[in-house]
Simulated assay, not measured.
Amino acid sequence: MPIKFIYLGLLAIMSAAALASDGPSLQDFCVADAKSSVLVNGKACKDPKLVTASDFSLAGLHLAGNTNNAVGSRVTPAFAAHIPGLNTLGISMVRLDIAPSGINPLHIHPRATEILTVIEGTLEVGFITSNPDNRLLTKILKKGDVFVFPEGLIHYQKNIGKSHAVAIGALNSQNPGVITIANAVFGSNPSIPSSILAKAFQVDKKLIPVMRTQFKI
């Protein structure tokens, strides 16, 4: 066999390996051990002999979140930090409560796609596509409607009804992460220099300290 074909074959194998996704789990479960000091991509596994049904359970998601805040919404998470049995399983969920006219502000999940189901109320939802188009795709959702927010894209939810709205979101990561755009940009620690923010947003530099007062933790 000519050497070039051997080389191309090896290159194809290496490329396939580089593109492969995570392999299947090598055990039934890996319940997170909150007491372990081992640093891994996730949590270290608890001794299977010490695992109980409670490691796979979370109570209270039927309770409404407190929406008495500046944006009028509350997200109640059910991640691996709250359900140890989710560790390594690649899924999680949230409950979203939004008061009338409230919003779940522009944010991204850096590690997960989200699928949202409206349980009560009417929501306006949307996400923005990546550069260069930056298209805003929006939809009005009512009870029972479902919408998908692709991984890493900026998105939001707004209650446009007259009553409290509730939705359940499922995400394909045990720890999807969240970056709320305004909070991250104007509330970073240490602060992003005013000159950079003013240039980026094309506004007067004097406006930046005013914005920071709204979002500084």
Rank of each mutant, 00 (worst) to 15 (best):
F147V: 08
F147W: 07
F147T: 00
V148L: 11
V148H: 02
F149D: 10
F149Q: 04
F149A: 09
P150C: 04
P150L: 01
P150Y: 01
E151Q: 14
L153S: 06
I154P: 03
H155P: 15
H155T: 15
Q157K: 04
Q157D: 09
Q157G: 05
K158V: 13
K158D: 13
N159R: 11
N159Y: 05
N159G: 08
N159Q: 10
I160Q: 14
I160F: 14
G161Y: 13
G161F: 11
K162Y: 10
K162T: 15
K162F: 02
S163K: 10
H164P: 07
H164I: 08
A165F: 04
A165S: 15
A165M: 08
V166I: 11
V166A: 03
V166M: 09
A167G: 04
A167R: 01
A167E: 01
I168Y: 02
I168E: 05
I168S: 04
I168M: 12
G169W: 00
G169A: 08
A170H: 00
A170D: 00
A170L: 02
A170K: 00
A170W: 00
L171C: 04
L171Y: 03
L171K: 04
N172Q: 12
N172M: 13
S173E: 14
S173W: 07
S173M: 13
S173Q: 07
S173T: 06
Q174F: 03
Q174I: 03
Q174P: 13
N175R: 05
P176D: 15
G177K: 07
G177P: 09
V178R: 09
I179Q: 13
I179V: 14
I179W: 06
I179D: 12
T180M: 10
T180V: 08
I181P: 11
I181M: 14
I181A: 13
I181V: 15
N183F: 07
N183D: 08
A184V: 03
A184Q: 10
V185Q: 12
V185N: 09
G187S: 08
G187P: 04
G187T: 12
G187V: 11
G187I: 01
S188M: 06
S188Q: 02
S188E: 11
N189R: 09
P190H: 11
P190W: 12
P193T: 01
S194P: 02
S194K: 01
S194F: 01
S194L: 04
S195L: 06
I196Y: 01
I196W: 00
I196S: 00
I196R: 00
L197M: 08
A198T: 00
A198G: 05
K199Q: 11
